[in-house]
């Protein structure tokens, strides 16, 4: 059969479509559904919730491990009363202040590092010294310098964001290809215009991952700092919320607070950074 076809490649044998069967067909509903990461991860969440519910029900000790249902009830109760939302908003406000301070300082440092050799030395030395240092370890010192208040929180948050962002941005700058650098200079870009129009977009994948890491560091630092020292401010944030309800031995509400910590983390990661990534580096084909 095949031998025949090779021998006589006439228009008849080449052109008929039946030989291929179907050239193109839409995926089935199930194929499309299982191709969606949102669906797969959503199913995992449901699975975890079911396991939690079954195991906690079996344990039957709400003081140690409340069921998923109890947690949801506490979550909606504190949500309804507005307490949980107010506490979360309080934390996010402080977080944004520290995060933006950190980013501004990181921008200054990396600009210096991109333009001068001594600036680069300074940045490399400082990141090597401070990046491994846990922000929480600076909190006692911050208390002495800035007192028991928002200032101390902003100080440790800045520390947790600054080095991660600066380190990633700087290594991104250094990885910009020599060709792209020459192109920028060819069209007369120097100094600040060169950084803004060539280096930042070319290093954007690194910068974005720095911002992500910085965000995660900041969020966990803030919650931890509030847990330890949250007593200072009257209203307090999400960390203090958790600490308070632990003191009242109200474990379901402690779980509700933890759920909120996770929820905020997921929202920022997928909604904010995921969207930025989709609109920039994925669209530009710059993701690796």
């Amino acid at each position: 059969m095949t031998g025949q076809r090779i021998a006589q490649p006439t228009a008849e044998t080449v052109g008929t479509q039946e030989e291929f069967g179907v050239v193109e067909r839409p995926l089935t509903f199930w194929q499309r559904l299982s191709g969606s990461a949102l669906f797969r991860k959503g199913s995992l969440v449901i699975l975890i919730a079911i396991i939690w519910q079954v195991y906690a029900g079996h344990l039957n000790n709400p003081f140690v491990l409340p069921t998923f249902y109890d947690t949801v009830v506490s979550f909606s109760a504190t949500m309804m009363s507005g307490e949980l939302l107010a506490r979360t908003w309080f934390s996010i406000k402080i977080l944004l202040m520290g995060y933006s301070t950190g980013i501004i300082l990181a921008a200054l440092l990396t600009t210096l590092a991109a333009t001068t050799r001594i600036g680069n030395d300074i940045l490399e030395l400082l990141t090597a010294m401070f990046n491994p240092m846990p922000a929480i370890a600076l909190l006692p010192l911050a208390m002495i310098w800035f007192g028991l208040g928002v200032g101390s929180f902003i100080f440790v948050l800045t520390h947790s964001v600054l080095w991660a962002v600066a380190l990633n941005t700087n290594s991104g700058f250094r990885a910009v290809s020599p060709t792209l650098r020459m192109v920028g200079r060819n069209y007369g870009l120097t100094g600040f215009r060169y950084i803004v129009k060539i280096l930042i977009p070319a290093a954007f994948p690194s910068i974005l991952s720095g911002l992500r890491i910085g965000w995660a560091f900041a969020w966990r630092t803030l919650i931890a700092a509030e847990l330890v020292f949250g007593v200072s401010s009257q209203s307090g944030g999400l960390g203090w919320f958790i600490f308070e309800y632990k003191n009242m031995l109200n474990t379901p509400t402690v779980f509700a607070g933890l759920l909120m910590v996770i929820f905020v983390g997921l929202t920022i990661e997928y909604l904010l950074f995921g969207t930025i990534e989709k609109k920039t580096i994925k669209r530009w084909g710059m993701h690796t």
Partner: peptide
């Protein structure tokens, strides 16, 4: 110094700005 009166075309494909 480099200037736009002499434009370079390179061998490397990454001479285009991907963004």
């Amino acid at each position: 110094k480099p200037g736009p009166d002499r434009v370079m075309v390179f061998q490397e494909f990454d001479q285009l700005l991907p963004w």
